[in-house]
Amino acid sequence: MIAELFAGVSTRARVLLVLLAVVMLAAPLVLDRYLVSVLILVCLAAYTGQAWNILLGFAGLLSLGHALYLGLAAYISAGLYVHFGIGPWLGVFPAVAVCVAVAALLGWLAFRFRIEGVYFALLTIAFAEVARIGFDHIGFTGGAGGFFLPVRSEDQGQWWNLRSGPTFFYYLALLLAAGAFLLCAVLRRSRLGHRWLAVREDPEAAQALGIHINRARMSALLLSAGMTGIAGVFQAFYANNLFPSQIFDISRSIDLILAPIIGGVGTLFGPILGAFVLAPLGEVLISITGAIGLNAPGTKALVFGLFLMAIIAGVPTGLWPRLASLLRLRSVGR
């Protein structure tokens, strides 16, 4: 199946892809802890970007509330671990199941009445906001004061509980990013993927070709939500602290969508490229603004906002199609 994916991909593209894979695999052997942590952010952004891209890039639905799934899964897996000693490898299942169930509820509400476009985006924000305010009041997971996973030295090395060093988290994030990329590549060529594209382009025309609009949309929503949930579990055990005001916040939802938008919505490589551009840019901005004494998080977000506006105004298809033609690659993106 993997070999089939590379049918029609130019040799040049194959070489570059293999090169990228080798570099990413070897990275922790040569880089220091800090740079590895930046690469973890890159991989995670590429992964969540891929998940969100399924919804907008493939199925044409704009979600501005994907932080909902990140937060739900993070809280559920962390809660199971802290209160019941259930490790994340097991906890990920109920966490993802809840994300999918909530997404199903949202989809059911939205798709019955053909709520799309702006209305759909607003509904996603509203769901995330309800979760944010709700978790502020759930004492079981710490409420507004935050929920903390114990970081004990005796737990270190328990990879089965995701209590391990940065290298471990790095390879896990890399695995997620690579897996999501391959999954999307398979989906792009599958029947389901073609259904999504048809519905994205013109729902009525798709329907006239025998495609069930709501089923297509729902499948994209559930998959996207479930995938984002897995990132939430990772996030919980990587960061070890959760605050409703951060993980469910609209700014988090926007962080999740920056990479695919900047890289190229609807392309397979866009989320990856976007992640490679954004995470290091963010780190550079933070260190520069920190050095000259400005409000670092504010400046970073401000520059990202300007960047977003510039990309959508100047390069609406994203950077990847440009880079692809610059590198003379044709069929990796689409």
């Binding site: 704009l62 504010g298 506006m309």
Partner: peptide, 28 residues
């Protein structure tokens, strides 16, 4: 104005970008 003929998503993302800029400028 240049976005009037663009897809709704693009308009939305443009204004999301503007919103981020405004709120963080105020924060700074």
């Amino acid at each position: 104005q240049p976005f009037i003929v663009r897809p709704q998503h693009d308009q939305f993302i443009l204004l999301v970008g503007l919103a981020i800029v405004l709120v963080n400028a105020l924060l700074m």
